[in-house]
């Protein structure tokens, strides 16, 4: 069950990606949002949002049960800052309930929080041009 997801992010980008994907696919935005800093900026819902507006929007979006698959392509990191480049695919539903598949590349910035734990600061998904 979603309540048992371990949200700790290690230094391993593939582990981070697994946690991110599992939290996303839980459908519970309040769980997923715990991976983000309070002041983080997310573009996952198609708008640039931060703070409570970001949390609300992600809760609404994940409640529609979109399904994420993602692969880490590359990471660059310093002691306390990481840039992940990730290929992703989201299966969701359009405005009329029709299935929609969104493919793209996301750049994510993770930083150390005050306890030295990785936390999402910024995400920036870019959709691939429609085939």
């Amino acid at each position: 069950m979603s309540a048992t997801i371990d949200l700790s992010l290690t230094d391993d980008p593939d582990q981070q990606n697994d946690v991110f994907t599992e939290a996303f696919n839980s459908g519970d935005g309040s769980i997923f949002d715990q991976l983000y800093r309070a002041d983080a900026i997310s573009n996952l819902t198609g708008k640039t949002l931060t703070g409570p507006a970001r949390t609300e929007a992600i809760k609404e979006f994940l409640a529609t049960k979109p399904k994420l698959t993602a692969t880490v392509l590359k990471t660059f990191r310093t002691a306390d800052t990481m840039l992940l480049i990730v290929d992703f695919s989201v299966e969701t539903v359009g405005p009329d309930g029709e299935p929609v598949k969104l493919d793209g590349t996301c750049t994510d910035v993770l930083v150390h929080d005050e306890n030295g734990k990785w936390v999402m600061a910024i995400d920036r998904p870019v959709m691939k041009p429609a085939a």
Partner: peptide, 13 residues
């Protein structure tokens, strides 16, 4: 062309 800026972290395109 794009900028996302928190109090201590920024991502730019």
């Amino acid at each position: 062309i794009e900028s996302y800026v928190t109090s201590d972290t920024a991502l730019l395109a």
